[in-house]
Nucleic acid binder design. Sequence first.
RNA 1: GGGUAGGUACCAGAGUGGCCAAAUGGGGCAGACUGUAAAUCUGCUGGUUUUCACCUUCGGUGGUUCGAAUCCAUCCUUACCCA
Length: 376
Amino acid sequence: MKFTKLHTDPNSSARTGLLETDHGLIHTPIFMPVGTVGSVKGVYHRDLCEDINAEIILGNTYHLYLRPGLDILRKAGGLHKFEHWDRPILTDSGGFQVFSLTQIRKITEEGCTFQSHIDGSRHKFTPENNVDTQRIIGADIMMAFDECCPGDADHSYAEKSLKLTQGWLERYAKRFAETEPLYGYDQTFFPIIQGCVYPDLRVQAAEHALQFADAGIAIGGLAVGEPTEKMYEMIELLNPVIPQDKARYLMGVGTPANILEGIARGVDMFDCVMPTRNGRNGMLFTWNGIMNMRNAKWKDDFSELDPSGTSFVDHYYTKAYLHHLFVAGEMYAAMLASEHNLAFYLDVVRQARLHIEQGDFASWKDAAVKKITSRL
RNA sequence: GGGUAGGUACCAGAGUGGCCAAAUGGGGCAGACUGUAAAUCUGCUGGUUUUCACCUUCGGUGGUUCGAAUCCAUCCUUACCCA
């Protein structure tokens, strides 16, 4: 896998690039829709390709390992074939579940013991079996197995956590080097920089992780409880530390504004459940601001859903109609909102790329952020 | 005409002397959501007030009582059954 930097913005650290995979090209900056258990919730793959134009989607190792399980994934010939998705896939390792399923897991130096959130059965992830599992899933980009450290952790915990992550990374890289892709196309892996909100830990984490970076590297453990400003500080801090020829993936982020600010600070790749989850819960992101479609104000607004939207749903349906679908609890509401939001997110990164190429990204970004964070 | 069971907040429906502005659902109105245990969760939902508190409210009217949604009388009314 290869990452090439293409353009740089003169007034910020924003850049465009190209990530070449065996399943196709990824133009960065990019947003990657999250498809945890083998589907981007509520959205047809057809629409993901043609309407939204997602260039890559995510899967999740923890969730897919529990269900459908490795036997089925192996028999299916990997996740691409199983879910019939021909474009690139990135899988998270389950490191986020180490963070979010804190009540039902135990961390040791060897790995992490989980209780399944589905049936309570006990399982263990180690860096080694995590590589094996992601080989079976067959992601184009595999994520290292880490501990996603909470944003409010103190320095001592963060340091201990980082040590663990670093030890796991070394073992992960070793196992990765010893194993081969199973399905005839290339796989790469991204190491993950942890270190919470502590500059000394972050820099140290980056320097360590960079030894294992091939095409790209990830910044993890952000947007997990720390103030947004701290998140921006950490990205700024890492920007000069990470070589320009590595794709930088800011994991789990975020709001459209977070993404633009991340791009301005040199980030190339983003993923987040926000467009789909918040969409299912009635929130629409647009260039003109945020709409809560359950609000009564939309009930007799028969204007098109989003005049500036790029999805067909934006011009095919009205605000009043979507409001009605949400109030009525119709699943179609969740589908339409997810489709709109993902199309918007992909439009955000597309516009960002255009403005970086034109060289006016920084000023455009400031104006855009102001607008998209307002409430309609 | 006779009998029985009812009439409680936007709706349904608990409550049957003080802890009742009144459970619980639904509906309504807002809010939250960041590598998805989320088509989920939270708050508010008689009036004034930031809270305390006070005022008005449980079909109508009139009583009993220190005190009534709750007991009594009467009227209105709904459903079902019998004729």
